[in-house]
Amino acid sequence: MFATLLIAFIVGGLICVVGQLIMDLGKLTPAHTLSILVVLGSVLDGFNLYEPLIDFAGAGATIPITSFGNSLTHGALAEAEKHGWIGVLTGMFEVTSSGISAAIVFGMIGALIFHSKGQHP
């Protein structure tokens, strides 16, 4: 149990370190960094490398945004096997739809309840 948590923490943390390095050393914006990590996850899954990482690190690999890229490729490949080329388009958002919908729904709830504010003393 403790070993599982520790591995998840370290692997998830290392992915975040990569993101921080892209921002600090690459002088890129948070939006660039996010996109790069999504593409990275997507490409890794294309080479069948992301699933073994999830088997190894669990939540350490599924929580960071790279997992979203992994899901995009995963969905596209799965549907392509079933329906051919058109499946690449329909499958991409099949696995990721829960994440996208959750972002919209919770974003809306947050906007309804809260009023943005700056830092206070």
Partner: peptide, 10 residues
């Protein structure tokens, strides 16, 4: 960025 976004600054 809007402050609620919480973007990092160097």
């Amino acid at each position: 960025y809007p402050v609620e976004y919480g973007g990092q600054k160097p």
